[in-house]
Amino acid sequence: MFTLEEKLGYAFKNKALLENALQHSSYANEHRGGGMRSNERLEFLGDAVLGVVTADYLFRKHPDLPEGDLTRLRAALVCEDSLHEVAQSLELGRHLKLGRGEEQGGGRRRPSILADATESVFAAVYLDGGMEAASELIHRVLLDKGREEAVEERRRDFKTELQELVQRKSGSTLGYRLVGSTGPDHAKVFEAAVLLNGEVFSTGTGHSKKEAEQAAAGAALEKLQQA
């Protein structure tokens, strides 16, 4: 079993910084007498460090992109979904310190908590090893993993693309159906189906009905393009 430091590829000189990065406010509130501090201050700093590193990366990689496009790309790269994916790859959830209520409510898997903890870990590395160490980590777990391409893929409107493709096939009809949902209210996963001429053609999942329909439309496009 890999330790978190092995997953991060970084060994802390001051282990207390990493411990603080993993302490959710619910845990700190339950241990006020012990002088526990939540990771919220680290999250604030980590957000800034992540923004600088990502801006520098995009500025150098895309010398001809205007400011507006760079801003949109940066926002998409550092959004909750991207940071949640990083947290999952690092198995950050199992290392978090949560209060009893948050633990029982599924906080260890909650995307917002995991995304915030990811920023806190970035800040902890920055404070322990400087900007170079933080930048290396952010590049390794986020920027150098093809996530920019994944972001661009998510920005595509698969439903519109599918509609245009189906319209070119005379006599074909297109529709969507919600198949069902799973999970607790704070972390529901929806499943939607694409109906082509009244028959289920593909399915997809997402954290909202809209995301599920987009995923189903993307799967349908892939099938049609391979046919």
Rank of each mutant, 00 (worst) to 15 (best):
D144I: 05
E199K: 07
S181R: 10
E222C: 07
P111C: 11
L17G: 11
D116K: 04
E6M: 15
K209C: 06
E40H: 10
R108V: 12
G204E: 13
G99M: 14
A133N: 01
G130K: 05
A124R: 02
E91G: 08
A227M: 06
A217D: 07
K210N: 10
A187F: 09
F158L: 09
R108F: 10
H31Q: 07
L195T: 12
E103G: 12
R108Q: 15
D56V: 06
L45K: 04
E149Y: 07
T54F: 01
R154P: 02
E211T: 06
K61Y: 09
H24Y: 00
R168Q: 15
E85I: 01
V189Y: 09
Y27E: 01
P66Y: 14
A193C: 10
T173H: 04
A216D: 00
L17Q: 05
Q226D: 10
R94M: 15
Q104M: 14
G129N: 03
V179H: 10
V200N: 02
Y176T: 03
E222N: 06
R72H: 05
E164F: 13
E103M: 05
V125A: 00
K7Y: 02
L73Q: 05
E30K: 15
A28V: 00
L162H: 07
C79D: 14
G34V: 03
C79K: 08
A75F: 03
R177N: 01
V52N: 08
L18G: 11
K97N: 15
L127C: 03
R177H: 11
D185E: 14
L165E: 02
E67D: 15
Y10S: 08
P184F: 12
D116Q: 13
V166C: 12
D56K: 04
D157E: 02
R154M: 09
A117C: 04
L45N: 03
L195W: 00
V194A: 06
E148I: 14
R110F: 12
Y57G: 00
K210E: 14
L137Y: 01
